[in-house]
Design a protein around this nucleic acid. Structure first.
Lengths: 140, 140
DNA sequence: CATATATAAGACTTACAAAGTCTTATATAT
DNA sequence: ATATATAAGACTTTGTAAGTCTTATATATG
């Protein structure tokens, strides 16, 4: 079995939604976010580093420091987070490079799978952090 | 990077399309199909065994033996082949069991990802082996 | 009936990548 | 000065996909 969204990506998503929840109230420490979201602390550190490199979060060092979202939660898509952590979303490896497969010329699957890949990417593009946040806390 | 369709699944798909190509002309030996589709022979054997267990192909032992499709190519979907080889298609492991995640009650991602998973499965349900075959050989 | 050709089954090994841990360095609020 | 936080990356563990090997069994055909 293969998950399109891996465990670490799931963790990163939770952390990002956590930051979204406290957006505007100053930085959130990794320790706090990790604890609240049930993510192993050391892993959370590494994930935050990746998210920082891709500018999805800003950091402030020192006490009272932590991470905060780089943009408004309505401007960060699920796909950005996913691809930051686990790389480009792929249906089949033959779709990641134009010349990845020499059989592609008489391959009936390629076109179909490319179509699906496009749909999936687009779907995740259209979901934003604030949607996830409001969706989840709707009932309260 | 994660491929929704793994390498072995890709191999199995090629083998199945090969059988579809010769459908009605008696069994195809694994050796022949593997060679024609560029699949390592021993791997092809294991894949054919899985396909046989799930009734997607019929086998005939002995010389002049080999495998043939269990049903007409128009009645075998891409999803059946994929799930026979690599198990259920999953967007996130939290979607595979009703109680896989205790956070699901206030999780905004779950609904969206379930929707996507449903779309992907349905998409692959609607593609059949004979479509793949005709798509690929259209130009000839 | 002997033999060559095919599948059947599963143990075993290898290779790779994800997940998780540990260590050291650096910045800053108080 | 010190405690608290991030920064960075080496390292270990674990899981699983991919690939190989071995032995058994069925059957067409001379």
């Amino acid at each position: 079995m293969v998950d399109v969204v891996r465990r670490n990506t799931d963790y990163a998503l939770r952390l990002m939604v956590n930051l979204a929840r406290y957006h505007g109230n100053g930085p959130v420490s990794t320790r706090a976010a990790a604890k609240e979201e049930g993510v192993p602390y050391q892993l959370a550190c590494k994930l935050m580093q990746k998210l920082h490199k891709s500018k999805l979060v800003k950091s402030r060092m020192g006490p009272k420091g932590g991470f905060s979202l780089g943009r408004d939660p309505s401007q960060i898509s699920l796909r950005e987070v996913v691809e930051t952590i686990q790389g480009p979303i792929s249906i089949n490896r033959c779709l990641l490079a134009a010349d990845a497969c020499k059989r592609q010329h008489d391959c009936g699957a390629r076109t179909k799978l490319a179509e699906l890949q496009h749909y999936v990417r687009d779907f995740l593009d259209r979901i934003t952090l604030d949607e996830l946040l409001h969706n989840g806390r709707e009932k309260e």
